Amino acid sequence: MTYVRRFALVCALGALGVGATACGGGGGSAGHPARKVVSAPASAAPSRPPTLAPGPAGLTPVFKSAAHSPVRTVALTFDADMTADEGPRAAAGEHFDNPALIATLRRLKVPATVFMTGRWADEYPAEARSIGADPLFEVANHSYSHYAFTGDCYGLPTVPPARMRSDVERAFTAFRKAGVKRTVPYFRFPGGCYDQRALRALTPAGVTAVQWDVVSGDAFATDSDAVAQQVLDGVRPGSVVVMHCTRSAAPATERAVRAVVPKLRERGYRFVRVSELIGTAAGRPSR
């Protein structure tokens, strides 16, 4: 079974409460302690978005959601996945981008955070630049290679510990090369898999790791109604929803978003970027 199909299966089980940890409920570090939220300088973006304080022993901090938030805010996040070895598939016509999804978010005026791999930015520089220039969005780091930072992560190849930091920094370099302006110092582990070794390796990079508490189940899904319902059932105030910005791997996502957005707005939810969600948790005023 391929990585993406296994990911979809595990996430679908997660919706039923079965083994959802690796889908982002707690990442690859079960029982990871909550992090204190602080406002810290971030060299990756001139707007200095909020970050989390380092964890015990200076480990990279992890943000999952703004649980128990008193206001109805929700962050939709989209992983723009492309692994380092998928160039031949793109050359053969496979679409790892999703312009219709970005257009729908713009039309509906939905702020969002796009977790982009550096390889994706290399393949679609004009789209990466357009997303990064739009104040509706912010671009966060999803590694350069989309290789796993732990072993046994949905069949993904692994990044050696000595190259973990450089893989993250290479993605930021790819964003700059593509002309992406609105980058934030947030990082999402490929597959949501991490452990203390990975957190320690990334400490010098100065990023905050961002997981999620709502699995959309959009990976390889064709039933947009089922994806939308899974999101609607899972969202709570302060939630972070993980979705995908890849036509070939998540063909139903754009239709699901069209269903989710008006229904959540009817429930009184306001869509925000991850930076605002962290900032609200830190006590910054909502924008």
Score class of each variant (00 low, 15 high):
residue 6 R to T: 15
residue 13 L to V: 09
residue 31 G to P: 07
residue 32 H to Q: 14
residue 33 P to I: 09
residue 34 A to K: 14
residue 49 P to S: 13
residue 53 A to I: 10
residue 54 P to V: 09
residue 55 G to V: 00
residue 56 P to G: 07
residue 63 F to W: 12
residue 65 S to G: 08
residue 66 A to K: 03
residue 67 A to S: 15
residue 76 L to E: 08
residue 76 L to C: 05
residue 81 D to K: 00
residue 89 R to V: 08
residue 90 A to P: 05
residue 91 A to E: 14
residue 95 H to E: 09
residue 98 N to D: 15
residue 99 P to D: 04
residue 100 A to Q: 09
residue 102 I to N: 03
residue 102 I to S: 03
residue 109 K to N: 15
residue 114 V to Y: 01
residue 115 F to N: 02
residue 119 R to G: 00
residue 129 R to S: 10
residue 143 S to C: 10
residue 144 Y to R: 08
residue 146 H to V: 01
residue 149 F to A: 12
residue 150 T to G: 04
residue 154 Y to K: 01
residue 169 E to D: 14
residue 170 R to A: 15
residue 185 P to W: 04
residue 185 P to G: 11
residue 191 G to V: 05
residue 196 Q to V: 07
residue 197 R to N: 14
residue 200 R to I: 07
residue 204 P to C: 11
residue 207 V to L: 11
residue 213 D to F: 03
residue 216 S to R: 05
residue 219 A to F: 03
residue 229 Q to R: 14
residue 233 D to Q: 11
residue 241 V to N: 07
residue 243 M to W: 09
residue 243 M to L: 14
residue 250 A to C: 09
residue 250 A to L: 10
residue 252 A to D: 03
residue 258 R to P: 08
residue 265 R to M: 13
residue 268 G to S: 05
residue 274 V to Q: 08
residue 274 V to N: 05
residue 276 E to K: 04
residue 278 I to E: 11
residue 280 T to Y: 11
residue 281 A to I: 04
residue 287 R to M: 10
